[in-house]
Amino acid sequence: MKLFLLTLGFGFVSASIYALLSVGLSLQFGVTNFVNFAYGAYLGVGMLLTYTFSATLGLPFWLSIVLATIGTGIVSMLISEFILSPFVKRRKSLFYMLIVTFGLSLILDNVLQIIYGVGFNEYPIGQSSPVTIGPFSFTGNQLIIIAIAGIVMIGVHLLLSRSRLGKAMRAMSDNADLARASGIDTNMVTRWTWFISGALAGLGGIVLALNIVSFQTTSGDALLFVIFAAVILGGIGQTYGAMLGALIIGVVTEVSTVFISSAYKQDIAFLVLVIMLLVRPQGLIPAKGKA
């Protein structure tokens, strides 16, 4: 039981990381209606920009995180502006959009690898001693991860429910043509969506690095399909569904380590994905017209 609760605690940490990432992917999917296969590489961008700001330039760590998050958002927005949007405007079919983002993932990964090499890096911060909260035990970093995720989730909720941008994003998710017809500047919304999606990917990459401590350029790639699993589980394009999916995937994968080797963590996520696609492909919270 003690072990179970301990892993449950780790489950919350993983869920926090996945929540940032799946919300970012899901928001973008909802608005643009195609999956971004380069998303895994965006994690690497955030992760490694933080490394550059903190380790190479010697900026304070918290500032590095902020800058890297914004930086990844900007990278994502620029990629959308100069590569993806032109394809969308030419009305390329879904096939081609997916192949383009797939191609982008290869390019970004290798650009990162040229800049940062293939070796492992670590952030220049000390490892704090574990903190015990009730039955759970966390490192300082893990508490920060949970806090960041919590704050961001509240922020996303406020964005979607209160702000004009958020409402426009929801309108575009429901029906892009209708949103355009009712006077929403869809280009602007798309641009901001990519920024937010990229920023969340970057931040997700950073907290992932905080959790695994030593990381390399491709550390985010393996996580891509875990994120897909969370997003599909929640209902593709559904932001709150993505949060729920992340929570389930995070907890299930970590708790599974009580019963089987932790080497199979990702295989568990894959299993959840497969079962979901077979049993309820529209996800727990289905989105109209998106399955």
């Binding site: 999956v35 879904l94 897909f228 994905l273 492909p281 399955a291």
Partner: peptide, 12 residues
Amino acid sequence: LRSDYLAIVTLA
């Protein structure tokens, strides 16, 4: 399913 899903499953 949409073609995205198949692409995701192959990649996964």
